[in-house]
Amino acid sequence: MTAAEPRVSLLGTSALLFEAPGETDLRTQRRIWSLAREAETWPEVCEAVPGVNNLLVSFTKPPRRLSGLTERLAMAWQAAEPLPLAGRIFELPVVYGGDGGPHMADVVAHTKLSVDEIVAIHSEPVYPVYALGSHPGYCYLGGMDPRIATPRRKVPIVRLPGGAVSIGGAQTGVSASDGPSGWNTIGTTSMRFFDVTLDPPALLQPGDGIVFKVAGIIR
């Protein structure tokens, strides 16, 4: 297998994972969105859910032979054109550091940057929503500056509060409710991302964008 080929692996008997080759980028993600739309029309597919430059394909019932499905995926990927989803932009005020950003020191230690530099870099871009996942309403964002990338924590923490703005590897995101996480929390914001009574229940969708606005820095 060369680096340019996508990779397919099993998630037990209930799903498979399709991973696009290459570096994480928006063009690839747009092709993933396109592939998801296609795969969801196949009868053996329950859901096709984009991740970050990858796609989870869950089965209505596990196929007896996998090769048919994996070959169709490979062909559909070859044919997939980038799907530009032009979404809305949401502005989120963030208080960086302090009690709401307990792992800022770890990001400082790893990146060798100052708190001010990390905040400036983190609050600069418009982050495209690549995918939803992790927990109800949570968004995976693309476009984080690699200078502030920080590895996930060695041991995940059991309860990260909702509104936590955090960095995990080369990604950043905002937790939508309290729960476990392996990411490094650098700040906090307040925003309601999920309401089960709405249709769709999640506030943001792939293709939307988030801007972090500095509401304060606690050093």
Binding site: L11, V49, L56, S58, A131, G133, R152, R153, G168, P180
Partner: peptide, 29 residues
């Protein structure tokens, strides 16, 4: 890894080396 969908039953190995089996309330990614 880049974040990706997972299902109940997936055995993850965080950097600490002790595995975690995702169960029914597992996060979907």
């Amino acid at each position: 890894m880049r974040s990706h969908g997972i299902v109940p039953g997936v055995i993850q190995v965080p950097h600490g080396g002790q595995p975690i089996v995702q169960m029914c309330d597992a996060q979907p990614s």
